[in-house]
Each structure stands twice: as C-alpha cells, then as structure tokens.
C-alpha cells in the first residue's frame, strides 16, 4: 500500500511551491505518472523514495509514515523497501555485476539466496556476464542490470525515473515488460515517472502532473 496526502515541495530558489496530487495505491496496483519536463516528476519520485522531505503532507509506504522517520531509519527503510531505476542506468563502476548485486544487498541488510539471484539474472539475460565489469556491458545489459539492482532485495515499491526515454521501441517494450513482471513477482508497487507515452499500455492507473 502506498498513499500520499497534500504533498508540496519547494526548492530554496523557487517562489512557488510544487503541489502534487494525492496518490492512493492498493496492494499490487501500479501507477504511471506522466508529465512534461520541469513539472516536478523527479521531485515527486525523490519525495516518494525519501530522498527529499516534503514541505507539507504525508507519505505512507506499507503504513509507515516515511517523512517522520529519522535520517538513519529512513536510509534503512529506503534500502529495504524501495528500489530505484534511473534513466541512465547506473551501477558502481569499480565493482562487477555480481559484486554490484551483493553490495546492494549488503547495504540494504537483506539476504537473498543464491538461487533467487541466479533466477533473476537468468530472467534479465545477464547470466553470462555475471563476472563482467560494468564498462564491459552493453547499453541494454546496463539497463537490465539497473532493473536487477532495483528488485534484487524484493522491495515493496519500485520507482523508475524515465527508464525508457533513451531506448528504442523494441528495448522500451522489453524493459517495461521486465519491470511489470518483476514487480508482480515480488508483490511490489511499480511507479514509473516519464514523459514517454509509449509506456502507457502497460498501466491501468495513470496521473498527469
């Protein structure tokens, strides 16, 4: 369950605060948030993941009011319950694929058995580049690794920020299918924030900022 109430946020240099519509997701529900550049899409995503604190309003994930958590608890909560996918897929460059996954699990203090990890890598077609360095991966492999990193710890919420904007139609479809599938498998909410209208067919719920 994910719910927001009266969220507003204001950057120091801004005159007017950003206002966000309330979100109310029940179990297994996904959400598409559409909007043009500059309307505060990324800000909303950062609010939902606890990277930013709202000026007013509340955010509940699984009933936990995350904007009232201390920094330390918020870090831990984010690590365990939230998975983030970025537009440019990022992983730690000094670590290889499997090391990135185990670092991800280490910091979120979650343990996953090795079979689940291998399954995940299989599904994402990363089985053969398990021990490859990050700079040896193709663009598509990197994007899939980003998804793996966002779901490997079985979070309750998967937040994706423009995950498809740099991909062609075919890859866009592959990535969206994978995201939806992984969210379903781990019983997580998938929230995608984008201006890319190609992802519309994958969602029942959508809001526009």
């Amino acid at each position: 369950m994910l719910r927001t109430e009266n969220l507003t946020f204001k950057y120091t240099q801004q005159l007017e605060a950003l206002r966000f519509p309330d979100i109310n997701l029940k179990t297994h529900e996904n959400l598409l948030i559409l909007g043009e550049s500059g309307v505060g899409k990324t800000t909303l995503l950062h609010l939902l993941s606890g990277l930013l604190k709202p000026v007013t309003g509340k955010i509940f994930i699984q009933g936990v009011p995350i904007n009232t958590l201390t920094q330390r608890k918020l870090d831990a909560f984010r690590g365990q319950e939230v998975g983030l996918v970025f537009q440019k897929s990022y992983a730690i460059k000094t670590l290889n694929v499997i090391e990135n996954l185990s670092a991800r699990l280490f910091f979120s203090k979650t343990t996953v058995n090795i079979e689940d990890i291998n399954n995940l890598l299989n599904q994402l077609g990363l089985k053969d580049c398990k021990n490859n360095n990050i700079n040896e991966l193709s663009e598509g492999q990197l994007q899939r690794l980003a998804i793996a990193l966002a779901v490997v710890h079985k979070p309750k919420v998967i937040l994706a920020d423009e995950p498809t904007s740099s991909l062609d139609d075919n890859n866009c479809k592959i990535v969206m299918e994978l995201l939806v599938k992984q969210a379903k498998q781990t019983h997580a909410h998938l929230i995608v924030i984008t201006h890319d209208h190609r992802v519309k067919p994958f969602f029942k719920n959508a809001i526009t900022l």
């Binding site: 330390r72 870090d75 831990a76 984010r78 690590g79 990022y90 730690i92």
Partner: peptide, 18 residues
C-alpha cells in the same frame, strides 16, 4: 568525481557513516 556512485549507495540503504 564519483559522487553519483556514493549517492547510489545511499539509495541502497547505506548511511553517511558507511
């Protein structure tokens, strides 16, 4: 130079102390 990597670790649940 690698602030993004460090920020990424924070999203993984790493604390500032870590």
């Amino acid at each position: 130079e690698r602030s993004f990597d460090l920020a990424l670790l924070r999203t993984y649940g790493a604390s500032n102390v870590q």
